[in-house]
Design a protein around this nucleic acid. Structure first.
Lengths: 195, 195
DNA sequence: GTCTATATTGGGATAGAC
DNA sequence: GTCTATCCCAATATAGAC
C-alpha cells in the first residue's frame, strides 16, 4: 500500500511519465475505447496490475495523458531567438499541415482526438478546450503586429488546420491528402493576410 | 433461415432502414465502440437477436450506416428552383456552422466521426472519403462561376467547417463555440471571395 | 424475421504475495 | 511498486423455438 525501499520517488515519477507518454501515443492513434490498459502497460514493459499504483482508472489516465500531451506538442516549442516571428509561424503551419503529422508524428490532440473526447467526462473536455485556447494564443502571439487579421480570425484558422489533419487521417488516397494540405497552407496565409 | 410468410419483403427493407438510421444517430453521437448492438436494436424496439437477420456484424453496420448518412445530410438536399446558387450556398454554410448542428441536428459524418473512422477498416475509410469528395463537389457546384476562387480552395473551406464543428463539440463554453462559428462563417466568405 | 436463451471473449478493476 | 491470479460485468455473436 505504501511505497517502500526498493523503489525511489524518482523511479515512480519516471514510470508515471512513461505510462503517460505511451498512453497518449496509443490514445491519439486509436481513441479511448480501442486502447486497453494492458496494451499501455505492455508498451511500458510492465503488467496490468502495476497500473493502479499510478492511476485510479482508465478515464483518469486519459485526462492526464491529454493534459500531458499539450506540453509536448510542436506548438509548445520555444521560438529560437534568431528567427523572426513571421518565419517561425510559417514554419509551425507547414509542420502542422504536413503528411508526417497526419501519419502520426507528434500528434496534436486537437486533431487526433477531435471526436473522441466528446464521450468523455467534463474534465477531458476542459483539457481539450484549454489546449485549443492555448493553440490560438500561441498563434496569435506570433501573428499579432505582423499580419493583417484580428484575434477572432485565428479561430477560423485553427479550425481549418485541425480539421484538415483530422479529415486527412481517414483518407487513403495520398494525392488527395496532399491537395488538402496544400490548399490549407494557402488558405492559412490568406487568412493571416500576408506572411 | 429463410424469410417466411408473416414478414413481407417491404417489411424487411423498412426494418433495415430503421436500423441504419438509428445506428447512424447513435454512432455519430458516441462513436463506434461506445455504441452497442443492443442499444441500436432497442432504439428500434427490437431485440439483439433480430439484428443478425439484417447484418453480418457491427463493423458492417457501421460502414453501411456511414454510407446511408451521406444521402440524408443537409448538403444532399436539392436547391429550390427559385433560390439563386449563391444564396443557397450561403444558407448551407450557415446551417453547417450553427449551434444546432454542433448539438447534433442532422449530424455531418465528416465532423461527427472524424477521428472515429481511423480505426475502422478500409471500407469505412472509403465511405468517409467518398462523402468528403461529395461535399466538395456539391459546394463547388454552387460556387463555380459565382465566386472568385479555385476548386482547390474549396478543400481548405471544407476542412475549416468540418474542423469547426468537430472541435466545437468538445467545448462546453457556449460563448467560445459561438465565436468559433462566427469566425468560420466570416472566413468561409473570405475564401469564397464574395458571396 | 423476431424472440429468448446461451456460449464465449475481452478487459477494467481488485487481492495478496514479494 | 510490481507481480500473478482472480473476480466480474459488458457485449458480440450463435442456437433454437415460434
Amino acid at each position: 500500500m505504501v511505497t517502500t525501499v526498493p523503489y525511489s520517488k524518482e523511479h515512480k515519477q519516471q514510470t508515471r511519465q512513461l505510462i503517460l507518454s505511451q498512453a497518449y501515443r496509443l490514445f491519439s492513434s486509436k481513441g479511448f475505447s480501442s486502447v486497453t490498459i494492458d496494451e499501455v502497460m505492455q508498451a511500458c514493459s510492465l503488467t496490468r496490475g502495476a497500473f493502479y499504483a499510478h492511476f485510479e482508472s482508465k478515464s483518469q489516465l486519459y485526462k492526464e495523458a491529454l493534459t500531458f500531451s499539450a506540453f509536448n506538442t510542436a506548438l509548445a516549442e520555444r521560438k529560437p531567438e534568431d528567427i523572426p516571428a513571421k518565419a517561425w509561424l510559417s514554419h509551425l503551419l507547414d509542420q502542422y499541415l504536413s503528411v508526417a503529422h497526419v501519419s502520426g508524428e507528434r500528434p496534436c490532440p486537437l486533431a487526433f482526438l477531435a471526436t473522441d473526447v466528446v464521450s468523455r467526462d467534463s474534465g477531458a473536455k476542459a483539457a481539450y478546450t484549454y489546449t485549443y485556447q492555448n493553440m490560438n494564443k500561441v498563434i496569435w502571439h506570433y501573428a499579432q503586429n505582423e499580419v493583417s487579421c484580428t484575434e477572432q480570425d485565428i479561430l477560423g484558422l485553427t479550425s481549418m488546420i485541425v480539421g484538415a489533419v483530422a479529415v486527412a487521417r481517414n483518407i487513403e488516397d495520398r494525392r488527395l491528402v496532399e491537395r488538402i494540405l496544400t490548399s490549407c497552407r494557402q488558405q492559412a496565409r490568406l487568412i493571416l493576410g500576408g506572411i
